[in-house]
Amino acid sequence: MSTVPSTSAPSRRVGEHIRYWLPAVVVFGLGLAAWQWLLPDVLGVEEFLLPRFSDVVQALVDERDKLLRGAWITFKEAFGGFVLGSGAAIVAALVLARWRPFGNALMPYMIAANAIPIIAFAPITNAWFGLLSPWSKVTIAAVLCFFPVLVNTLRGLTSVDPESIELMRSYAAPEREVFRRVRIPNSLPYVFSALKVASVLAMIGAVVGDYFGGSLEALGIVVLSAVNLSQYSTSWAAILVASIMGIAFYGAIALVERYALSWHPSVGRRVQ
């Protein structure tokens, strides 16, 4: 219990942040350096396997219009699929949680369906919606999102402490109120972790879906056609764009989560 005058709290916080993130930043720098020099110059990795980092950045700058156009098309597909798939899953979870015998009857199939490699349907959805329609890719992304969100939301809605339900019962609360005041808030942490997973799946679904048809300007097509023309730097630049987009999508949901779950012990540690 000494009274050593310490640096002010904010500047100590900054120091802590730097110490926490420094190793990650160093690894990032080392990774880029290895990509730029170690792989091509020392290990002799050929350009068609992995172009130099600076070449990829160059391609990123040169082809920015094409890449941005493609990114926008693919993002719209992914986002549309994400909204449709997750939305349908949340509605389905509410229905299944409200009418449990129904839910119990369907649940095994839902879990089994979760194991289907949905991507295998990509050529078939093209047949459904037409080769050039974006809807085939929206559908793939939506179906990919559907099952994880459904299973997690249902778990969140049903894994409620029985005494919380007894308490609501003691207030003569109708089922609607139990959902509104207990089950739905209880499910939110589950829903958000499912939505984060779904955002990644939606991006995968849209990019892979691009390979099978739809707009010729979509990001997946940019990757594919650049490979066919041996413009490997451009393919890698497109992959980089897809990655950044995926991370941004994920990050956006994480931000909404922080806001929506500010009450949650894992988020709101501020008092005491």
Partner: peptide, 21 residues
């Protein structure tokens, strides 16, 4: 009596809702 909300109940666990202050 329950439907008329004639009683309050306290369990061994506090059964508070984390999302409420």
């Amino acid at each position: 009596a329950r439907l008329d909300r004639d009683y309050g109940i306290v369990f061994q666990a506090p059964v508070l809702y984390d999302w409420r202050t």
